[in-house]
Design a binder for these strands. Structure first.
Lengths: 323, 323
DNA sequence: ACGCCAATTTGACTTTTGTCGAGAGCCGTG
DNA sequence: CACGGCTCTCGACAAAAGTCAAATTGGCGT
């Protein structure tokens, strides 16, 4: 192995600056380079993850609203991203928070299941680097050949890369044309093994999808808008790991679900920590469905969604009491 | 436990600054406090560990180890050859690394002192070619007529050849039979000049030798095994450029050292960059002696040796603190 | 061997951050 | 209710960090 002077220098600069607390000009004279170069190296160090800066997310769990939601929804932990007027896109806030939360939840040696979607990919994209030994990131559901940049395998690999973990991909289409074919494919050893191992995960990361005519699964071509309309009439309430669930959080009894290659809801429920992240307020009903189905133990949402959830929980509790 | 408002502010400031990348003045206006307060909160956040800044550990194990060693041993630079399970001979790795380090340290117009030994010769042997004008390679110690392939003059000439540099040899025996003769030879103009010029070197390359019964100097016939045993009882701890040093890195007061024609330790210490390369783990004690004697500013070792050195440094630091 | 291109490094400049003393608010006490 | 003693906050200045065009270096093709 040839030594990489650049990386060597970056590392030395980062070490002296962050671990030793030297100033940049001191680092510069130590390494016989200009201070400007030191500044550049330090930026690279931050970008490449040679140094990690992480902040505690305690603030967001200590929120009164978060506590109330934990109680109301019987969740292990809830984080609420505050609404900030200075940020253009509140959903970014949620993703940033989710990334931090995710990193806090990951432990050495964990096996992590990752689903797919814009939310998950956004989280992966802003997640800071870490090096967690023996962590394995597994893909929870099949792929779609769609021209989307956030394919399941990409989400998995990107997160694995950021954590310096092992990525375990799973190359099957998310949905097949016939149930028979899906059944056969699920029986394939390489697929079966992957699916069987999902319940051994320690942590899952997913969002929930809507069931609109222009929702994610439709855009990806897994379903046509017409089929989706039909499914909604049958009770479709949300999408979890590529599967349609009803308002109770159960897998909808439909041909589509039977043609999907993905982690079963029951295996997902066996994962100890199920981190659900919801960015858009429009996902209220799908989220309720996922919560009803016990598909979530840890939740990251925005403040407005949190309030809606709490109102809803309060209202239904009140209704129950009244009845 | 509800956190106190002050702590809440610290968390918020830390979050906005570190996770969101806002500037301090933006954080200040967001929280309706002055920027000065923000700066103070951020310091508190770092001090109390609400934000964590860490340099990557697993991913750059060897680099981190090197930085720690630099700190512990007060060296200018340390390089650590990683341990690869797939390489049969780890010492080759060290030599390869040492050769590139050496080439990096050489500057135009430098004068380089080269000692001798298997390590140095191995380095010379695998060193890639370079064209360094005005570089002069000088021999640090006298020759031995032994049938070894790595005589001091060979090491010097080989390195000079590789660098396309001028080699300055020095034809005197390493050790003479009487102190008087050694004294006389050292006074010879041609020898004296060479020795006097050693402190003008910019870079030195050497390893350290052991003081076993079958060590290098014994094998070369400079000393008999019996003499070496005696010397070890007198405190011999290692061999540098043909001279015996004690555990403190000082030249051992003995007849042998007085009969040696070599660069004095004090002249070696005047060389700005002293690159020491140690391949064998068995050279631990000799290396400690050389380090104690300040005979090394740049160090290339293997990972296991590095760990031993760090353990030792940590232990002695602990002992000092305890006493 | 030569000159050209890309990448790196630098010095000078701007912006951002750290620090310090002054002052404002708060609370228990006389 | 006025008064110290206390902490917290602010404004202004000094120090440090970030940035960018220009210069240098090193590699590569002719």
């Amino acid at each position: 192995m040839a030594i990489r002077p650049a990386e060597q220098l970056i590392h030395k600069a980062a070490w002296l600056y962050y671990a030793h607390g030297l100033r940049q000009d001191q680092v510069a004279s130590q390494l016989n380079i200009s201070r400007a170069s030191v500044a550049m190296y330090l930026r690279k160090a931050r970008e490449t993850g040679i140094v990690n800066i992480s902040t505690s997310t305690q603030l967001f769990t200590d929120d009164v609203l978060a506590r109330k939601l934990e109680d109301a929804l019987k969740l292990d932990a809830v984080w609420i991203a505050p609404e900030n007027d200075y940020v253009l896109d509140p959903s970014t806030d949620i993703a940033v928070l989710a990334a931090s939360v995710f990193l806090e939840l990951v432990k050495k040696g964990d096996r992590i299941g990752v689903a797919w979607g814009r939310t998950v990919y956004t989280i992966a994209d802003i997640m800071s680097y870490a090096d967690l030994q023996d962590v394995t990131v597994v893909q929870l559901c099949g792929n779609l050949g769609a021209p989307y940049s956030y394919r399941p395998d990409q989400c998995t690999m990107e997160i694995a890369r950021r954590l310096n973990a092992k990525g375990l991909n799973f190359y099957a289409p998310l949905v097949l044309t016939t149930e028979l074919l899906a059944h056969g494919l699920r029986a394939e050893p390489v697929i079966r093994e992957q699916l069987a191992n999902i319940s051994n995960c320690d942590l899952a990361l997913y969002s929930v999808g809507t069931v609109d005519a222009d929702c994610h699964v439709v855009k990806c071509g897994a379903l046509s808008a017409g089929e989706m309309t039909l499914l909604r009439e049958l009770g479709a309430a949300g999408v979890i790991a590529g599967q349609i669930i009803d308002a109770a959080g159960k897998a909808l009894d439909c041909s589509y679900n039977r043609r999907v290659i993905s982690a079963s809801l029951s295996s997902l429920r066996q994962i100890e920590k199920r981190l659900m992240v919801v960015q858009e307020d429009s996902k209220f009903e799908p989220l309720l469905a996922a919560l009803a189905g016990g598909l979530c133990t840890h939740l990251v949402v925005g403040a407005s969604m949190a309030r809606r959830l709490l109102d809803h929980a309060g209202a239904s509790a009140g209704a129950k009491k009244a009845s």
